[in-house]
Design a protein around this nucleic acid. Structure first.
Lengths: 199, 199
DNA sequence: TCAGGGTCTGACCGATCGGTCAGGCATGCT
DNA sequence: AGCATGCCTGACCGATCGGTCAGACCCTGA
């Protein structure tokens, strides 16, 4: 009531971000968002075509950054692709950790929605780059686990500043990922492949 | 139609598992489950008090295993706790990867439900054990990322058999987690702490 | 033959969801 | 003064949700 300047659009966006972060996308109703802003649900739908439009406008900067990282990786060979992907992804995770946090546990749902259709393919390419384009189980498992783990948890470290978190994540990635180097000999399945990581 | 033996209970449970795995807990309706079995929704609610009862009966064995792991870790010091937790958790992840997969992206929601209330505390203790009870950011970040990453993705490696997956996960955990050993000197924030992991 | 319990069902309930719509109310231009 | 436009609203829509309930259909044991 008595809204000086029609900044309602931005207020709705901010409220949606806050609610999504707490109760998730599917778990947040337009009514919830409207209540938090202090307007009617119809007003939310006056400013945004539908619920999904709200989400994609909220995620636009992050989406653009991911697309840009994907383009930077495209065409790079195993070794360089892995390094660029790892450092680029850690950077995104740190910069956007608040926004990523609000997708907690909703990646599967969101990737199915039209606005995020191509993100599915991008994330697959990212995982492949993390694995250094290696088909070896150890490389693939490490790549997916680390990537998903970072995406899922980067918003939880409120007590760390950006530099501390980046440092910790980069260290983890360097230790965890297996170098693409020369593919291990097939046949023997349980070779103890020691340590030697360091991206 | 023409149900020889009343194995409906088990069929509903199995169908619920399948549906939850695809569309998630919140994204699956009792109607969906009933349709898959070929019975009415009322039948589902005849065999199970409510939707949550369905989930907790579905997860009973996994829950028991996690509780048992938690008890095994209790009272162990940093070094031993980390090794036991890591190997125990990897073992659970491999054994129950199908069941864990059906919780994809629903851990936050599920942990809030009464039937899973104490799992929240258990998982916190597990993360602490993964970090070797170390407060160092590198240890905490590695612990949470790896644990969440494994939980989130262990159901995705359909092409790997149990031994292959266990091998890959154990390798990853040994590389990624930082040993609790002697706590690093506070003050300097950006020490390159090399490699040397091996749980 | 009949009673009773286990199994299953359609019809129904209140709540909530995302979304639509006609209209109210200011403001500013002509 | 009259009119258009932007912003906002309450009332309403059909769909779907989890859950309830009275009764129908078997099978079994007395």
């Amino acid at each position: 009531m008595a809204r000086a300047v029609p900044e309602t659009h931005a207020e709705i966006l901010a409220a949606a971000g806050r609610r999504f972060a707490v109760t998730g996308y599917k778990g947040t109703s337009l009514q919830d968002i409207a209540r938090e802003v202090g307007v009617s649900k119809a007003t939310v739908l006056y400013h945004f075509a539908n619920k999904e439009a709200l989400l994609s406008e909220l995620m636009a900067p992050e989406l653009a950054a991911v697309v840009e990282l994907d383009e930077r990786i495209a065409g790079l060979g195993g070794d360089r692709a892995q390094r660029v992907a790892a450092e680029g992804f850690v950077d995104l995770a740190v910069r956007f950790r608040r926004q990523i946090a609000l997708l907690r546990g909703e990646f599967p749902v969101l990737l199915q929605q039209p606005a995020f259709a191509h993100v599915q393919q991008i994330s697959e390419r990212l995982v492949a780059a993390f694995a250094g384009h290696s088909p070896h189980p150890a490389a693939r498992v490490a790549a997916l686990v680390v990537l998903a783990g970072i995406a899922e948890t980067c918003g939880e470290f409120d007590d760390l500043d950006d530099d501390e978190l980046r440092e910790a994540l980069l260290g983890l990635v360097r230790r965890a990922l297996v170098p693409p180097a020369d593919p291990p000999p097939p046949g023997s399945s349980s070779t103890q492949d020691g340590s030697t990581t360091t991206v």
